[in-house]
Design a protein around this nucleic acid. Structure first.
Lengths: 361, 361
DNA sequence: CACGGCGATCAAACCGGTTTGAATCTGCCG
DNA sequence: CGGCAGATTCAAACCGGTTTGATCGCCGTG
């Protein structure tokens, strides 16, 4: 009823210059063909002569017409959109360097196929289930990404039952048995961290884990353990934390309180590592002279920490793009391409150094 | 053609146990009414008797039916979705603590009204324009958020011409003349920072700006300047940076190279501030003994920086929620509610301290 | 008892595309 | 010159809801 649109063409020809939305019929009429022909051209299907195709494209261009995603979604029973549900306490979300980069990567993969990304941020498990249900029942999306995979996570099956295609984002070696998984090799980065510390003379290497319910937490812990075993070093102490700065600081104090404290600590992420440095410094333990520290993520601040943080960098953007390509292939019924992800990088900065005896040598 | 769905009900009753999608007609049939009646109930419109309503709700529940967002979007010419375009170099995106929190807040506001958020991450201006066009032409969304507003930004008008409702996210005092703006008071935080430094005895207070094209960058600079003038202090040096750590470090060196270097620096964000501390430390300038530093954002790492960072905290989640409520009201043609946002907080930590003469006094 | 008004009900039109099936139009061959 | 395969073309059905307009019953009123 109330139209706030200004009428751009005041006293012009009243008939053809109506300011209504341009629809496929208008294009067809202007090109002198049927709606079907227009539709065929815009879905590049054969069955339209070159001359007709030309007229149609010109007409569409002149009218500035593009097929409505709404109508298209309905008639093809296909939303041309995929969903990402992020389950995280809103306040803690900005802690995590993963999601922004992952989403950016996903976009690259999606835009290439003209898909949209529908986002949902939820706080707890119940809202998360509800979110997937809404996605499926309302047919808003054709598929979903499953991130932050937990041990024993049932979402892959849940998604299938809801009729949603899914790709699971998890470290390579945690690749689940069912559902298409795409993963990067977390383990490799941790392994390299341990080898680096070993080469600097460290023998008591501890680990501060993130929240234990996630498969990537466990993957990193296992990689740390296996690297120690491979090198013939004693398996050091593990402290469970939860990826927050506070937990990293607390875990660090625990480790330094041990009768034989470690000379190096591998943390599950950069935030805990930096908080750990802060905790160590508070009690007079110097980094890297008395304690070497390795993080994980290479957040933008890592080079500016004091000392600059040695850490592991993954190409999360590439990961997102690969995940998107896989999911699109999946919902379109194609065989997903086999993707090769760039290898993990290990970035040596100032927070790791030789042990005391090495320095004297 | 190729259906990879397993057939869940092999030899069951062929007729009623079809595995097709449940549609409104099925619900209507089961309740013994017409489609219209079902539609009326699910859009709580009058014109359905209590008994019929009851039967309909029961039937829908038993069948697990929910209206398809696709069909609904088409027939109501309304996508029940809004868009957010983020223009940022993917690699730099994780630098910014704003977006994750903002999106989380937006979700809170949207889910309450059952709207979806469609995201688009783009790298440059051209793709950004294209993204808004795709949103509008394909009718994927009903409205958009405009963030990272630039000086002389034409997007509010652009959006209007495309027929998209828009809410502009910008600091309060930069609230644009056209389009509905919702903003928080950046200035207040900066003002409080300057007053805090003044009370510690500082008189030479410099400012490291972020990228100058943004209105919020300018708002913060102006607030810094006005606070100095109000306090009768000389207007210090401003260095232009771009919100990255590298630029913050460089700007800090520039300031400390001055013949009369500042005793305090107010930075446009925490990342630059922490990089600034790192730069100062590198050249033997101690924080806070020789130099006081204030950031902006209160990123999760701020308490764990060395020294812990004094900074300004905004409730970005609340901001997002308010923006979402406003946008939904707008696209539904209602008067947007007037929102009161929580005030900015100023968090004093260890990176600011009294000047040398104050300490001796 | 006729009539106006109101709530409940439903068939049909509509939203803007895609897809199907039949009609029409070639060109080519026997 | 008849017949036929293959390419174009289009009208009509369809996707799954919402909305309109007409019909029907029922009640209270003059």
């Amino acid at each position: 009823m109330i139209e706030s649109e200004p009428s751009p063409n005041g006293a012009a020809e009243a008939e053809s210059s109506s300011r209504k939305r341009v629809v496929i019929g208008d294009v067809a009429a202007r090109a002198g063909v049927s709606k079907s022909a227009v539709s065929f051209v815009f879905n590049n299907r054969s069955g339209v002569s070159a001359s007709a195709r030309e007229r149609i494209l010109r007409a569409a261009d002149e009218l500035g017409w593009r097929p409505s995603a709404r109508a298209r979604a309905l008639s093809r029973s296909h939303a041309q959109a995929v969903g990402l549900v992020i389950r995280r306490d809103p306040e803690l979300l900005s802690t995590d360097p993963f999601f922004p980069q992952f989403m950016a990567g996903v976009e690259i993969g999606l835009t290439a196929h003209d898909y949209s990304l529908v986002l949902q941020v939820v706080a707890d498990e119940q809202s998360e289930r509800a979110a997937y249900h809404r996605f499926a029942d309302a047919s808003r999306v054709d598929g979903v990404f499953l991130t932050d995979v937990r041990i024993g996570d049932t979402r892959p099956q849940d998604a299938r039952e809801l009729g949603l295609r899914a790709v699971v984002i998890a470290p390579e070696d945690a690749a689940s048995d069912d559902g298409v998984a795409i993963g990067m090799n977390d383990s490799d980065g941790v392994r390299r961290a341990v080898h680096h510390l070993h080469s600097l003379g460290h023998r008591r290497i501890a680990h501060v884990m993130g929240a234990p319910m996630y498969v990537h937490t466990e993957a990193r812990r296992r990689a740390w353990r296996e690297a120690l075993v491979d090198l013939g070093l004693p398996v050091g102490t593990v402290v469970t934390a939860d990826f927050t700065g506070a937990s990293g600081a607390r875990a660090t104090h625990e480790l330094l309180d041990l009768p034989e404290p470690p000379t190096a600590i591998v943390y599950g992420n950069d935030l805990m590592a930096i908080a750990g440095v802060s905790a160590a410094t508070d009690r007079g333990v110097r980094v890297p002279e008395d304690l070497s520290v390795v993080g994980f993520d290479d957040i933008p601040l890592a080079p500016y920490a004091l000392p600059p943080l040695t850490t592991v960098r993954q190409n999360v953007v590439a990961w997102g793009t690969a995940a998107a390509q896989t999911l699109v292939a999946l919902v379109e019924g194609r065989q997903p391409p086999t993707v090769r992800l760039p290898p993990v990088e290990f970035v040596v900065r100032g927070s790791t150094g030789p042990t005391r005896d090495r320095r004297h040598a």
